[in-house]
Amino acid sequence: MEEDFKVIDNYLMVKMPEEIDHHKSSYISENADRFILRENVSNVVFDFEDTRFMDSSGIGILMGRYKKISCFGGKVFAINADHRIRRLLMLSGLHKIVEIME
């Protein structure tokens, strides 16, 4: 699971699991925070390539990380999000603070 977190330059890359729910979310949030602190990265990229299910817990993960890094000028990105995940990001208004990329 450690290999799902990679630091490239100033970016933390997080490979999101197949299913993102409350059960999985604390592991992702805690590890992301550990990397942000330890490696001193300012941006976080969440990669949804493998994700087939997500509920509002996924929104909570992105929102929480945004709160942590935005005050230092960092950005949160979402990549490879399918149309369902995009719809959740839109509905929650997260597309205003998270950059959604192909």
Binding site: S56, L88, L91, S92
Partner: peptide
Amino acid sequence: EPLFTTKPELNRSGMGFPF
């Protein structure tokens, strides 16, 4: 209400009922 949560420390988004 959207974004209302009693557990922000658990990274809850307050989007459960809205979804």
